[in-house]
Simulated assay, not measured.
Amino acid sequence: MTAPDRIRVAVADDQAIIRDGLVTVLGLLPDMEVVGEAADGEAAVALAVAERPDVLLMDLRMPVLDGAAATARVRDEAPETAVLILTTYADDASIMGALRAGARGYLTKDAGRSELAAAVRAVASGQTTLAPEVGARVIGAFSAGAPAAPADAAGPADAAAALTHRFPALTRREAEVLALVGDGLSNAEIAATLFVSVATVKTHINAIFAKLAVRDRAQAIALVRS
């Protein structure tokens, strides 16, 4: 950053009026600095590589290169830049595609100024942020895609066994934790379910993220769902 307390943000959207509005809104925030804007996905990647912003606001439907593909490129070519999707689309395919590509957050364009600012700050600090309706769709998509278990099945144990088979690098306990993450449980809820400490759950989750090359819970859920 040019100043230690300012978040460097770039904006990618093919609609000039939306780009201008975002640049204006973000530029008025005392802890943020807009370092560039792009009108298509290819230009967004070039901007991220050249400026290395802390956060890149990315639309999904853009010419030349769509937002999901551009997000994947940014993750590879400018990994220090966190991508925050800002789009009108909140369907399962758009959400999952963006999260699998490496987006750190996902907002819809009806978000208010305070919600947008909070999301930028969250992803800049390494957190994941999803609009409430997006988070609900992520969990709903996972749940809808999970096969129904027979009445006498062990449930979570079966899910862990399936994940161990899919991801042999995981230990049995890590697979159990991943299954519960996929069910939308918090660290505290996972700890209570498995009768371990929250610190132990965090250790397992860090190991899972490293082994599966995912950066956050949203990507882990998308991977399980895929």
Rank of each mutant, 00 (worst) to 15 (best):
T2C: 00
R8C: 11
V9N: 05
V11Y: 05
A12R: 08
A12Q: 07
D13P: 02
D14P: 09
Q15C: 03
A16I: 11
I18R: 02
G21Q: 07
V25A: 12
V25M: 14
V25Q: 12
V34R: 09
V34C: 10
G36K: 09
E37R: 14
A39L: 03
A43I: 06
A44M: 07
A44D: 07
A44S: 13
V45T: 09
L47C: 09
V49W: 07
P53R: 03
V55Y: 03
L57D: 00
L65W: 04
L65V: 10
L65K: 15
D66M: 03
A68L: 08
A70M: 08
A72W: 00
V74S: 10
P79F: 06
P79H: 03
E80A: 15
T81H: 05
V83F: 12
I85S: 03
L86H: 04
T88Q: 10
A90E: 07
D92M: 13
A93C: 02
I95K: 00
M96S: 01
G97S: 06
R100Q: 10
A103Q: 01
R104Y: 11
T108K: 05
T108S: 07
G112P: 05
S114Y: 08
A118P: 02
A119F: 01
V120K: 07
A122R: 09
V123H: 08
A124D: 06
G126H: 10
G126Y: 11
L130C: 07
A131D: 11
P132E: 05
V134I: 15
V134L: 06
A136K: 10
V138N: 01
I139K: 11
I139C: 00
A141P: 01
F142C: 02
G145F: 08
A146D: 07
A146V: 12
A148F: 11
P150Y: 12
P150S: 13
A157V: 15
A157L: 13
A159T: 12
A159P: 05
A162N: 10
A162L: 12
L163P: 05
T164A: 15
H165A: 15
H165Q: 14
H165T: 15
R166S: 14
F167V: 11
R173T: 13
A179L: 09
L180I: 08
D183E: 14
L185V: 06
S186R: 13
N187P: 00
A188Y: 06
A188K: 10
E189S: 14
I190L: 09
A192R: 15
T193Q: 14
S197Y: 07
S197A: 13
A199G: 13
T200D: 03
T200I: 04
T203K: 14
T203S: 14
I205N: 01
I205W: 06
N206P: 04
A207N: 12
A207M: 07
A213G: 07
R215I: 04
A220C: 12
I221L: 06
L223V: 06
R225S: 14
S226D: 14
